[in-house]
Simulated scan of single mutants.
Amino acid sequence: MFAITAARIAPDDPLSGLEAGERPDPEPREGWTTVRVKAASLNHHDLWSLRGVALGEDRLPMILGGDAAGIDENGDEVIVHSVITEPAAPGTTPRFSLLSEHYDGTFAEKVLVPKANLLPKPAELSFEEAACLPTAWLTAYSMLFDKADLRPGSTVLVQGAGGGVSVALIKLAAQVGHRVYVTSRDEDKRAKALELGAYAALPSGERLPERVDVVFDSVGQATWRHSVRSLKPGGAIVTCGATSGDAPPAELTRVFFLQLRVLGSTMGTWEELRALTEMCVRTGLRPEIDRVLPLKDAAEGFRAMAEGDVFGKIVFTN
């Protein structure tokens, strides 16, 4: 089968480790099933894998990709939840990983996944739309509705406009009535954020007209100080990433004096993915898709993400 593979780890030139070509079909495994991939979406995780984050040389070559929608062995249209749970011995903690970390991912014609990781794809969602949900949109959903503990009509700041999680946060938060501030260095991306429902969009680092209840930060070092200083007393930062680095000044004096909270968030549960899918169906909310490319042209999508030339999700199709 045709697949997009991490063949080499290259921290300084990640795209040089990307290869496209034939790989063996998945081998049957008890409790798992093969899904014929119709669409798969690109995430920063895939780019970081090529840099060696969460993927070691000993596991190469590895088919990349975590998100997918396709057709299972019964002919049913399905969405793949990409969090793999390993059985644990009594008294120990289960091990969690994402597809493409220990098991081949979704940038292929077929992917092998646990049967329990599938959920029905509603007819209302296209394969391309459904493939955007399991990572970026699920992460945003969990950050907003589980970690943030917000009341209707709250004020929030989304740091960075353009990435999959940020765009999902803008659309989800606006949908439920929050006042959404957004930052970006890019004027066009700020304008697009306003079109998606943001209340205001400001240049990165610019002081907000008011302090907010919660900041959603996936940028890290470059935005951390601004995130901390944008919060009301008792507010919270919910972080799911550090694309600019993970060692900013902690601002601990402000954190303890204003009794701020810092909450980490990674992905989401199968149940949250089902709820997110239902929300999309009932409200008409749909993922923002930057571009759709045939899988054979995946390198173009990786290059756009590496250069920051993205607003929403990049989707590959078979």
Results as ranks from 00 to 15, higher is better:
2 F>I: 10
3 A>D: 05
6 A>M: 04
8 R>A: 12
11 P>K: 00
15 L>T: 01
20 A>W: 06
20 A>Y: 10
23 R>H: 08
24 P>K: 04
26 P>T: 00
27 E>L: 15
29 R>C: 06
30 E>T: 05
31 G>Q: 01
31 G>D: 02
31 G>S: 01
34 T>Y: 07
42 L>R: 02
46 D>G: 07
48 W>D: 12
49 S>P: 08
53 V>C: 10
54 A>K: 15
56 G>H: 13
56 G>D: 12
57 E>T: 11
58 D>G: 09
59 R>C: 12
60 L>D: 06
62 M>T: 01
64 L>A: 00
65 G>R: 03
66 G>R: 14
66 G>P: 13
67 D>P: 13
75 G>M: 02
76 D>G: 12
79 I>P: 14
79 I>A: 04
81 H>L: 09
83 V>E: 01
91 G>D: 03
92 T>R: 10
93 T>V: 14
96 F>M: 00
100 S>F: 06
102 H>G: 02
104 D>H: 15
106 T>W: 04
107 F>S: 00
108 A>H: 00
108 A>N: 05
111 V>C: 02
113 V>P: 09
113 V>R: 07
114 P>K: 00
116 A>N: 01
118 L>K: 01
120 P>V: 03
124 E>T: 12
125 L>I: 08
126 S>D: 07
132 C>T: 10
136 A>M: 07
137 W>Q: 13
139 T>P: 14
139 T>M: 10
142 S>F: 05
142 S>H: 14
143 M>R: 13
144 L>C: 08
144 L>S: 05
144 L>Y: 12
149 D>R: 15
165 V>Q: 14
169 L>H: 13
170 I>T: 01
175 Q>S: 15
178 H>A: 07
180 V>S: 07
182 V>Q: 03
188 D>F: 13
191 A>D: 13
194 L>F: 02
200 A>L: 09
210 E>T: 02
210 E>I: 00
214 V>H: 03
215 V>Q: 11
215 V>A: 06
217 D>N: 11
219 V>H: 04
219 V>A: 08
220 G>W: 03
221 Q>G: 09
222 A>I: 02
222 A>Q: 08
223 T>S: 15
225 R>C: 08
227 S>G: 01
229 R>G: 04
238 V>H: 09
238 V>T: 11
245 G>C: 03
246 D>P: 11
252 L>M: 15
252 L>P: 07
253 T>Y: 14
256 F>M: 13
257 F>A: 15
257 F>S: 15
258 L>K: 15
259 Q>E: 15
259 Q>R: 14
263 L>A: 11
266 T>D: 04
266 T>V: 13
269 T>H: 05
269 T>R: 10
270 W>P: 05
270 W>C: 00
271 E>R: 12
273 L>W: 05
277 T>V: 11
280 C>R: 14
281 V>K: 14
282 R>A: 14
282 R>M: 13
286 R>V: 01
295 L>R: 03
299 A>H: 11
301 G>C: 03
302 F>Q: 02
305 M>A: 09
305 M>F: 14
307 E>L: 05
307 E>D: 08
308 G>H: 02
309 D>I: 00
309 D>H: 08
313 K>P: 01
313 K>Q: 01
313 K>S: 07
314 I>P: 08
314 I>S: 04
315 V>N: 12
315 V>T: 08
318 N>H: 12
318 N>W: 06
